[in-house]
């Protein structure tokens, strides 16, 4: 059994009947459950399926398709560096290398101490202010390698918001 916050349940109960079909609520439910619990476990997937009278595979196939849905918890900080061409032209790969060095963690992985999960993302539609970096749900723009070092320090000290 998973235990969701009352607030999440309330949101779910409100949302489902608004759609012309229950199945349309599948992706929104994945988001809500993931936001509540941090990731989508086997049990969460089964719970969502049951709530929508679907089979677990119907949810599983979404989880494996949509990059934002995850089946494992992230580190305390979820750092995502936009690597697409406009940000790359602005130096995103150097920014990412700077994070890798600071956290001693390769992009695509979680640091051993569990502090950060570092990942690439594709264009976040703010290319005029690249390199763009997301920390949780918070967006940071114009992050050059030097600013990345500063951000990393604030994550290590716990000063920076986790953007949850």
């Amino acid at each position: 059994m998973i235990s969701l916050k009352a607030e999440t349940i309330e949101k779910i109960d409100k949302l489902v009947p608004r759609y012309p079909t229950v199945r349309s609520a599948a992706l929104p439910l994945c988001h809500l459950v993931q936001e509540d619990l941090g990731y989508l476990s086997r049990e969460s997937i089964e719970w969502i399926a049951e709530r929508l009278e679907l089979q677990p595979i119907n949810i599983q196939e979404l989880v494996t398709f949509y990059p934002m849905l995850r089946t494992e918890p992230t580190g305390e900080y979820h750092v995502r560096v936009c690597r697409t061409l406009p940000c790359a032209l602005a130096g995103a790969y150097q920014t990412c290398r700077s994070f890798e060095k600071e956290f001693d963690c390769k992009v695509g992985h979680t640091s051993e101490d569990g502090l950060v999960t570092l990942g690439f993302v594709e264009c976040h539609a703010d290319c005029g202010k690249g390199p763009v970096v997301m920390v949780g749900e918070d967006e940071y723009t114009d992050i050059n390698p030097k600013k990345a070092v500063e951000m990393a320090a604030k994550m290590k000290s716990g000063e920076l918001s986790k953007g949850l």
């Binding site: 199945r23 349309s24 196939e61 949509y66 934002m68 594709e122």
Partner: peptide, 29 residues
């Protein structure tokens, strides 16, 4: 008329209108 805001989940192909519709209906895009 009402408006429902429906969130995608990181897949570019959801911008293609029929992929978008599949996604809205609760399927892979």
């Amino acid at each position: 008329c009402d408006i429902i805001v429906h969130r995608g989940a990181g897949a570019y192909i959801c911008g293609e209108e029929t992929g978008l519709i599949e996604s809205l209906e609760g399927f892979r895009a």
